[in-house]
């Protein structure tokens, strides 16, 4: 009996290995066999840092596209997702199939730990810019978004509104701002690193004295704007602001004159995914034009898929001065960023 089992394991891993080799070069296709196998598994578990409503909507769309496969969306802040994956995998708990966070550093670490499966969907290889996916095919840029300044246009007049990061240090914004936490949000971690490189830590030291309301996730500042709890956000997800605008909330985005930090959200399949086929099917769905367009329309996310059409009224990426992420540099600075931040902001 043991012999038979070993043989099966050997056989399946051999198949997987040869398959991986093929995917790395030109991407895998969604075949009827894959759909059938995925359906047998019945579920796919998606650890994500995207806004919960967007992620749930995506899940629902997938379930409609492939009836019989349930998507279990587990949403938390990027750093929490990361911490959770770390805790789970290092203790031998294999819950997650597909993981997505907005902190590019995470995927470097996952890769180092050999926690990711190889193989990208055909669409990524064909359509994505080369630098937006891992050369070894272990992860790819699922989304990009900006961390932006935004304000309530009914509470702050446009001419009074800040134009750039430096304007936020004006004493008139004392007690008026909300911002998210780099220890919790990958987006803010990326942004904090990019801004500290650009303006130095003095900028944050001064910002820390502005009685900023400190929230955790980068999805939260726009929601505090919507509640009217604070009229101005120092940082926060652009896509959440888009969604508020779509809902008719009077908010306006400011693309800072100094530059706006861009965050790339990668997605990957885990090597020990409990539902490997459903994971592959879902993963390929994530990068499909349909999903990417939905992310853009409903979620306000930026996409690397050239087919995605931006909604009217949104500033296209090419017109925004971007602060590009520096993954390697950020990884080295991680501890320091958190320590400095606590020093200036208290938490």
């Amino acid at each position: 009996m043991w012999g038979k089992r070993a043989a099966i394991i050997a056989l399946t891993s051999a198949v997987a290995w040869s398959a991986n080799l093929a995917y790395a070069q030109d991407g895998y296709k969604v075949t009827p066999e894959l759909i059938e196998a995925a359906r047998k598994e019945g579920t796919v578990v998606f650890y994500t840092a995207t806004d919960v409503a967007v992620a749930e909507k995506l899940g629902k769309t997938f379930e409609e596209e492939y009836p019989g496969i349930k998507v279990q969306v587990e949403r938390a802040g990027s750093e929490r997702v990361f911490q959770r994956i770390g805790q789970e995998l290092s203790t031998g708990v294999y819950n997650a199939d597909v993981v997505e966070t907005s902190d590019a550093v995470h995927f470097q670490m996952f890769k180092k730990q050999s926690w990711l499966a190889s193989g990208l969907p055909e669409e990524v290889i064909k359509e994505w810019p080369k630098e937006e996916y891992d050369p070894d095919g272990q992860f790819a840029a699922y989304r990009a978004h900006l961390s932006v300044i935004a304000y309530r246009s009914d509470m702050i007049k446009e001419e009074d509104a800040p134009k750039g990061l430096a304007d936020l240090l004006d004493p008139k914004w004392k007690g008026k701002m909300v911002k998210a936490h780099p220890g919790y949000s990958g987006t803010i971690m990326t942004a904090t690193y990019a801004i500290s490189k650009l303006l130095g830590w003095e900028y944050f030291e001064k910002l820390g004295k502005q009685e900023v309301m400190q929230v955790q996730s980068s999805t939260e500042p726009p929601k505090k704007l919507a509640q009217g709890e604070r009229p101005l956000e120092a940082d926060g997800n652009e896509y959440n602001v888009f969604r508020l605008i779509d809902d008719g909330v009077p908010v306006k985005i400011v693309y800072a004159t100094e530059g706006t930090p861009l965050t790339v959200g990668n997605a990957a399949i885990l090597a020990k995914a409990p539902h490997p086929n459903a994971a592959k099917l879902f993963y390929s769905f994530l990068f499909s034009l349909k999903a990417q367009q939905l992310n853009s329309d409903f979620g306000g996310l930026r996409s690397f898929h050239p087919g995605v059409k931006e909604k009217a009224g949104r500033t296209p990426l090419k017109d925004i001065k971007l602060l590009m992420p520096d993954v390697a540099g950020q990884e080295a600075e991680l501890e320091n960023i958190k320590a400095k931040y606590e020093e200036y902001f208290g938490t």
């Binding site: 400190q214 958190k338 208290g346």
Partner: peptide
């Protein structure tokens, strides 16, 4: 946390980040 301070329990929790 929004008020910008930690107490001991939230501090312990943040050490798990």
């Amino acid at each position: 946390l929004p008020a910008g301070f930690h107490v001991i329990t939230t501090k312990i929790w943040s050490l798990f980040q």
